[in-house]
Simulated assay, not measured.
Amino acid sequence: MKHLRIAERACLGLHIFSMAFGLAGLLLVLPNPEFIAQLSPLGLKAFSWGMSQGGVSYIILGAIAVGLFGYRTLGLKPLLAFFIPSFLLSLSSELLGTSTGFPFGAYHYLSGLGYKIAGLVPFTIPLSWFYMGFVCFLLATALLEVTPLARWQRQIAAISLGAILLTAWDLVLDPAMSQTPYPFWAFEEVGSFFGMPYRNIAGWIGTGVVYMTVATALQNGKQFVLSRRELGLPVAVYLVNFIFGASITLVLLDAQFTVPTLLSSLFGVVPALLCWRLAPEEVVSDEDAPGLSETEMDYPALETAAK
């Protein structure tokens, strides 16, 4: 498992670097064209490639990092039980949404996120639904494992909380990606919630609930439970993706967008940190959970910060 851990951490590092590079370009370089004018032809070519492919790169790297993590800690079957429904059902929702306006509202994708499936939805979009949905579900499940609820109640609660964490992230992602001077998608209607239609929020919750429910059913009701130590990567992925969206929203948009950022913090960041911090310190593995007892992922910086 050591080589998987190394590859996983490398992809996580590159995922974070790609987002940092994108932030630097969007927040510092593009608003200052005089800087771009000073670049050499090679530098200009590298910068242009980074700006055009940065969105694709960080999503793919995030999906690979989370995929390797899921395979190493849970095994192939639980990983596929989540990846397949999350990819296919989110893609179906996005294709339906871009074609009919249901369930997210009328919108369409611009360039910058890769090849568009059916000319409508970039292939990276269902990958982002997968890796962010997976970390949200793992965090929610770990927290609810320590509650005195019955198993079926924990499953329903984990699906609900996971969908809320996922939707809370979108509260900063959507403004950052659709309303700044450098958008990646655009709504075709003026929404009442800071430019977003309220049904976009309902669509996110609904899509998350549906594919998390299917993923749970494919495991015959067995939950993906990890210990606090093992949840270092999921909480790190959630936090850096929140920071990416929040940074763009707060810097490039006006002060009113502090509100959705605070809501995202309240319903996303705070619960995610609590899920990680209150997760069981140890998880006893059984014959139906291969790989759990072998995991020793450790993120000491996060552990120290919580003390």
Rank of each mutant, 00 (worst) to 15 (best):
F104T: 02
L27S: 09
L89F: 04
G25Y: 12
I59G: 07
A37K: 10
L110Y: 00
F83L: 15
F87Y: 10
S99H: 02
S90E: 06
Q38T: 13
Y107H: 09
A37M: 13
P33S: 03
G55V: 04
F102K: 03
S92L: 14
P78M: 04
M51E: 15
I60S: 09
L30N: 09
A81Q: 07
L44F: 15
F35L: 15
R72W: 07
A65D: 07
K77Q: 00
L96F: 03
P78W: 00
G70F: 06
I59K: 03
E34R: 10
L27G: 05
P41F: 05
L95M: 08
V56K: 11
Y109H: 07
L28N: 11
P31I: 07
F87W: 07
P103C: 14
S52V: 10
V66S: 06
L91F: 07
G55F: 01
G105A: 05
S99N: 08
F69G: 10
G67M: 11
L95P: 00
F69C: 12
S40E: 03
G54E: 11
P31H: 13
G55A: 05
F87P: 07
K45I: 11
F69Q: 13
G67S: 15
Q38I: 10
L79W: 12
L61P: 10
N32M: 11
L28Q: 12
I64V: 15
T73I: 12
P85D: 00
L95Q: 03
I59S: 06
E34I: 11
S57A: 15
S90D: 04
K77T: 01
E34L: 14
G75N: 00
T98I: 14
G50K: 01
V66D: 04
A63D: 09
F47P: 04
F102I: 13
G70A: 12
I84S: 04
V56Q: 10
S92C: 14
S57P: 02
L39K: 05
G50M: 01
Y109K: 07
S93T: 04
L91H: 13
K77S: 04
R72D: 01
G97H: 00
I36H: 00
F47C: 10
